[in-house]
């Protein structure tokens, strides 16, 4: 989880979200979808829903696969939380689901950014790379003390806060702040993607 959150998850989300529109445009299928007519707003929503579904499934898969491998290799037993308390496997599974939910929310903003970037180009690799770069830049900026005023506004700011799901009692503050922040990103970049996609000339 620790490696996957800052690195692999954004990478995967970047690929998925960056491919949404640009991938169709690159194949040329975008024009056929629009002529079908799929409707631009509808297509955008469906594509974003697809990216979100990935954001939900990916952490869940990682978490549950990790738990399953752990269960195979080690005896199933109580799990120690960060606060030093222990929980039973059932509760632990719930915590994993909570973490997955936290990460899904965390990645929603990045998905929206990827969606927007994807409407800018017909080269999916470009949109994917740009999305991944954005996530890296955001994470680097989050580490620079000189940019501290910016930190609470970075979409990656709360990414590692999923540890709060492992505390006893549960801390919901970071979950709520994260959700609010991500909602902001979804609103801004969703609106940008809408503005861009609805006025875009499909020339591919």
């Amino acid at each position: 989880m620790l490696v996957s959150v800052p690195l692999f998850m954004p990478l995967a989300v970047g690929v998925v979200a960056g491919d949404t529109i640009a991938g169709e445009a690159n194949l040329g299928t975008l024009r056929y979808l629009l002529v079908a007519p799929a409707g631009r707003v509808r297509l955008l929503l469906v594509k974003y829903a697809g990216a979100l579904a990935f954001c939900i499934v990916a952490p869940l898969t990682v978490g549950l696969a990790g738990a399953a491998i752990g269960a195979v290799l080690f005896p199933v037993g109580p799990v120690t939380l960060l606060s030093g308390g222990v929980v039973q496997p059932a509760e632990a599974a719930l915590r994993i689901v909570l973490i997955a939910a936290y990460l899904a929310v965390s990645l929603a903003g990045l998905s929206a950014i990827g969606l927007f970037l994807s409407t800018l180009t017909v080269v999916p690799v470009g949109a994917m790379a740009a999305t991944v770069v954005v996530s890296v830049v955001s994470q680097v900026a989050d580490q620079l003390p000189q940019l501290e005023w910016l930190h609470p506004w970075l979409f990656s700011h709360y990414w590692l806060g999923f540890g709060d799901m492992l505390r006893q009692p549960l801390v919901w503050d970071s979950f709520a702040s994260n959700a609010l922040l991500q909602a902001g990103y979804v609103a801004v970049f969703g609106a940008l993607a809408y503005g861009r996609f609805v006025t875009k000339d499909i020339l591919s």
Binding site: A187, A191, T199
Partner: peptide
Amino acid sequence: LRWLPAVAAPVAI
């Protein structure tokens, strides 16, 4: 008008 939400969202935030 179609760019309006893109302007409105940051302003609202």
